[in-house]
């Protein structure tokens, strides 16, 4: 059971919150200008990292506000929460995971 710090209300149990997926995926200002590939990327493709994940939560059974959180998807520990519109804070994300991929060859 996660313990989540709502930036408006403070520390509360996960039961009060709804996860709303990856954060910082800004809706394009002019979707019609996007290719089908770019639109599909916006709609469906996600970073799904093993490590720090920026994600959206809503304090549904509280203030009703959406906010962002940085959470370590290995431990589920929430490292920071911050309001919508604010940049993600710089946080110590710990040692890189053994499974963190590295790029080889050409992308």
């Amino acid at each position: 059971m996660l313990l989540i710090v709502c930036p408006y209300c403070g520390e509360r149990s996960e039961l009060e919150f709804t996860n709303a997926g990856e954060a910082h995926i800004r809706r394009p200002s002019d979707p019609s200008a996007l290719s089908d590939e770019a639109w599909a990327a916006f709609l469906f493709y996600r970073s799904n990292p093993k490590g720090t994940h920026a994600e959206r939560w809503r304090h549904t059974h509280g203030c009703g506000k959406f906010f962002n959180a940085l959470r370590d998807t290995r431990t589920d520990r929430i490292v920071a929460t911050y309001k919508i519109g604010q940049p993600a804070p710089m946080v110590e994300t710990g040692a890189p995971d053994a499974a963190t991929p590295r790029m080889a060859g050409r992308p």
Binding site: G21, E22, A40, A41, F44, Y45, R46, S47, N48, P49, K50, A99, T100, P101, R102, M103, A104, R106, P107
Partner: peptide, 14 residues
């Protein structure tokens, strides 16, 4: 997602 990223491929997965 992690393995595909090694090949530079993003995935529609969570």
């Amino acid at each position: 997602s992690l393995v595909m990223q090694m090949a530079g491929q993003s995935m529609p997965l969570e």
